[in-house]
Design a protein around this nucleic acid. Sequence first.
DNA 1: CCCCTTCTGGTCATGTCAACCTGAACCCGG
DNA 2: CCGGGTTCAGGTTGACATGACCAGAAGGGG
Lengths: 235, 235
Amino acid sequence: MGRQHAERVDLAVSTVIFALRPSPDSDLMTLWLPLVRRIREPYEGRWALPGGWLSPEHDLETAARATLGRTTGLTPRYLEQLYAFGTLDRSADDTRVVSIVYWALVHADEAAQAIDSDNVEWFAVDDLPELAFDHRTIVDYAVWRLRTKMEYSRIAHGFLGETFTLAQLRQVHEAVRGCSFDPANFRRQILATGSLVDTGEHLTGTSHRPPRLYRYDTAVQPADHGPLTPSKEQA
Amino acid sequence: MGRQHAERVDLAVSTVIFALRPSPDSDLMTLWLPLVRRIREPYEGRWALPGGWLSPEHDLETAARATLGRTTGLTPRYLEQLYAFGTLDRSADDTRVVSIVYWALVHADEAAQAIDSDNVEWFAVDDLPELAFDHRTIVDYAVWRLRTKMEYSRIAHGFLGETFTLAQLRQVHEAVRGCSFDPANFRRQILATGSLVDTGEHLTGTSHRPPRLYRYDTAVQPADHGPLTPSKEQA
DNA sequence: CCCCTTCTGGTCATGTCAACCTGAACCCGG
DNA sequence: CCGGGTTCAGGTTGACATGACCAGAAGGGG
């Protein structure tokens, strides 16, 4: 059962971090994610997902959180395991690496003040550079999961602040799903889920009728993980 | 970035294998899965999921397939990665193990002639013994995934043969979902998806009107994996 | 030959959802 | 101070999907 070859399997944990930022050309909100420039071979100079080796004293999720804090200085509003990638050819040299990848949502205005250090840069998901390893596949899968989960779950929460208007929430859905929704129908559907709480306050300062401010019902879980509760694998 | 402690992280691959068998007390079909008895500490004598250490020359999915063949002698009709479990306390001794778990569906009548060797035994998911490690949590999660996926995907395929009647397909859904469906409505919904092909043949020998035999449309994928095609991570 | 079973197709009431319409409420320019 | 512009907020309508139910068709068994 032990390892027969001299080589071994290395375990890495990477994270796909999503934030919502205004597009440079249009004023619409689009998806962005931070990448780090590789300073070592293989793929030196290429952009890659933030991550690191898994040390024995760290939990998988803890490692993903640490990576997130190291590269962006932020704490995620949502964090979930994406997939474990482990094909033989994904490392390009003769090492064998299995990457357990997480995906996270961070606050939009927090992401604006995030650190933009030398080797970390934010990219729009529609305009990514060439990535190292199989990271392009990973990002595509993460975007697909985000889009799919947005349809049936309430993870839009992760992009917004404590209180928000229905228009803001709708803009998040439109940015991620990539299509526009009827404001009236969107209101009816969202309110029908019972996951929103009316704060009674209104957002003022707009040049039109002041919209109501809502808050998420904290009693409802943001996403259905089945028997696995988030942030805890209830071992 | 390297491992700081003397201990390391070991990587295991386990598989939750599902088959449909008639219940011993009732004649209804129920979910069963094979477990292996541990012959070593920790948890010696307890039942556990089939699995093994990941060797550097094996793909993750290949390892899962190998485990499946070793314990049941079967090839899966469906195989998908479930989750990577990696909390610190899941090994009960001072080793650190990360388990990448797959789940699989095998043929019902093939499972009947499957090997029932000394240390391998099939159990009904509703009547499981105490399991080793956190394997009970893993099984619960796998059952939840199977039930959830059955609602929107066409993985019932994995339990059936090449051709089948609508009643057989309905029985699979009823066994997994745990409720009964109206035959007429079930027919309408399934046929509306366009994933079934009428073979033109009928099943004879029954004591009632002979039902039509259908076949799955091979052009349609059994499940939506997004950018990740099954059996291939398109690295 | 009648009866029982299941298959197969159909109807009907209900609920859901997208498209559309209308009044409400606020800011701003004149 | 007042009317126009804009968005919010709620209601209506028609198309479509869903679930409960019904009835004829087609076999085998007593």
